[in-house]
Design a protein around this nucleic acid. Structure first.
Ligand SMILES: [Mn+2]
Ligand SMILES: [Mn+2]
Ligand SMILES: [Zn+2]
Ligand SMILES: [Zn+2]
Lengths: 142, 142
DNA sequence: GTCTCACTGATACCAGGTCTCATAACCATG
DNA sequence: CATGGTTATGAGACCTGGTATCAGTGAGAC
């Protein structure tokens, strides 16, 4: 079963209708290699309305098929998610994304909950830096 | 010396000009109690142009007079910052913000740098939840 | 007081995203 | 299959947050 079929099964299982527009958006999403903006999908899923692309992205986010990637300037990208809850290390130079294996703050969430009496429901955690490749190319040009 | 004067001194020290517009924006910012959007300041600093408000907010961010508060939906707010680098715990119900004392991920940044060969330059970290007050009011209404 | 350059604000513009609503079509059911 | 109810679509208006342009102003060094 292809990845596309697998996503379609998930939608069916949750009583969402399988429409050509949705399939086109999902196919475009699955074809991305790194992180991407919604606009990229709007361009690549030709003929699908802008609103539908945004609606489908929301669906895919809720189903955990994509994850949100927050860039340093607070703009929102997406990325195909092949695991559960996790965070990212983004190269600010080439855009490469490293998925981090586990949530580094789950312990902290418990501590915070105890210390502050907040019931903690969510968090954002993203790291920015330069990957080894980008660092060495900078070294060469300076 | 008032907080306003203190900020003005900081601007002077860095060779920024003290203009009525800047003073109005800074005064409006310092009058905020929690986190706020730029739009709030646009409304409250009457007569100051939109662009100038945005420019001044950028200045204040660079000078660490305000810090950026990222909401759960990735929208950007600001908050008067009375300390160095830190993170936030935001109540998604009433908007109350708790400043967290220290950066909880500075150790992690070092570990990550070693493990991934990235040079890590920055991060986003924000927590969302419900404060004690909001939790008890929910308990009452259910 | 003069001069210069940083700053301003009106305005146009852009990006990202939502709302509306008439139309289309998916798919459960018979 | 044929039908029907309900879900999804897409054109376009609209909204929010933010930047670019540029002629005009005024802060403050001298
Ligand atoms: Mn996490
Ligand atoms: Mn930190
Ligand atoms: Zn890189
Ligand atoms: Zn609260």
């Amino acid at each position: 079963m292809s990845e596309l079929e697998s996503v379609i099964r998930q939608l069916e299982a949750l009583d969402h209708r399988i429409t050509p527009s949705r399939v086109a958006v999902i196919a475009a999403v699955l074809a991305q290699s790194g992180h991407f903006s919604v606009e990229t999908i709007v361009h690549q899923a030709r003929g699908v309305g802008r609103a539908t692309v945004f609606r489908t992205m929301r669906l895919l986010t809720e189903l955990d098929i994509v994850c949100r990637v927050l860039l340093e300037d607070a703009s929102l990208h997406y990325r195909v998610s092949r695991r559960g809850h996790h965070h990212h290390l983004v190269c600010v130079s080439c855009g490469n994304v490293q998925d981090l294996d586990e949530c580094a703050v789950s312990d902290l969430v418990r501590e915070l909950a105890a210390a502050t009496e907040y019931e903690i429901e969510g968090h954002w955690l993203e790291f920015y830096g330069r990957c080894a490749a980008c660092r060495s190319s900078v070294a060469l040009t300076t």
